[in-house]
């Protein structure tokens, strides 16, 4: 579904040349939920903007369903970290969710249906007439998620969506995203700096090196599909996986991969193709 091949991004400007992303290759299968983690400043946002068609890569390419991304693809939605700035304060919740649908030239009846369905699935039917700034942070991010759902994307990109909400809200939103993913079968690429979150949510975790970025490791998360905050997070397997990811990230910061002492019981997914 989502193919990233040899992606490279170099920023040039005012005499400085910054290689943010060196060479990234990975795939996300249709209906898969993949989390990207990496040390801070490793070019996660750059990668996501390239995938979302908001930035043109210096080299390499991004393919969605076999088609090359040259601008924002019509079957992809992005949920940004800064919900307060990503939602438009001059529009009510309903209008915020509906605006992208108007660009899709859908009929008014179909738009209403999609908006109502999306708001219902994030549990915000009652807030349709409110302005985003009348809602709490967690609710605002739910509105942003509803806006993405109503757009009916095949691929959903999430850029550290829960970095700005409190821990309890974050747990609720994580369960919401996993629930929606299982219900709707969307392909999700979830970028985060939170290791626990990546392991808890993902079917697979891609660990990025520090900048200039490459994929340090791909790790299959072999936890049961039914996960919950209470039991999954204290499962021994969860602890093993998170420890492994943590070590890889520490190693990424130092720039040397660790000698893999967990390798016997960790089944790394083979590189794509």
């Amino acid at each position: 579904m989502l193919d990233v091949r040899g992606l490279k991004k170099v920023y040039e400007g005012s005499g400085r040349r910054v290689e943010a992303v060196r060479d990234l290759t990975f795939t996300v299968d249709a209906g898969e939920l993949v989390c990207l983690v990496g040390p801070s400043g490793c070019g996660k946002t750059t990668l996501l903007k390239c995938v979302g068609g908001l930035l043109t890569p210096t080299a390499g390419e991004v393919l969605i369903g076999g088609r090359r991304v040259t601008g924002p693809p019509p079957d992809m939605a992005v949920v940004f970290q800064e919900y307060g700035r990503s939602l438009f304060p001059w529009m009510r919740v309903r209008e915020n969710v509906e605006l992208p649908l108007k660009q899709k030239k859908l009929t008014a009846a179909r738009r209403r249906e999609l908006v109502a369905d999306a708001l219902a699935s994030v549990g915000l039917m009652d807030a349709a007439g409110a302005y985003p700034w009348q809602l709490s942070g967690g609710m605002q991010q739910r509105v942003a998620i509803a806006r993405a759902l109503a757009y009916e994307p095949r691929v959903l990109l999430m850029d550290e969506p829960f970095a700005a909400v409190d821990a309890q809200t974050r747990a609720d939103l994580e369960d919401l995203v996993r629930g929606l993913w299982r219900q709707r079968g969307i392909t999700i690429l979830f970028v985060t700096h939170d290791i626990d979150e990546a392991v808890y949510l993902g079917e697979r975790v891609l660990i990025l090196s520090s900048s200039p970025t490459v994929v340090q490791e791909q790790l299959k998360v072999d936890l049961p599909a039914d996960r919950d905050q209470l039991h999954t997070r204290v499962a021994p397997r969860f602890a093993e996986l998170r420890t492994h990811v943590y070590e890889q990230i520490q190693a990424a910061k130092r720039g040397t991969p660790v000698a893999d002492r967990l390798v016997k019981d960790l089944t790394d997914t083979p590189p794509p193709q």
Binding site: K49, G52, L54, P72, V78, E82, S86, P100
Partner: peptide, 15 residues
Amino acid sequence: VDPVAEETARSYGLG
């Protein structure tokens, strides 16, 4: 104009 708002609009295909 907020760059995040602008990017949101672009990512949802607003011309």
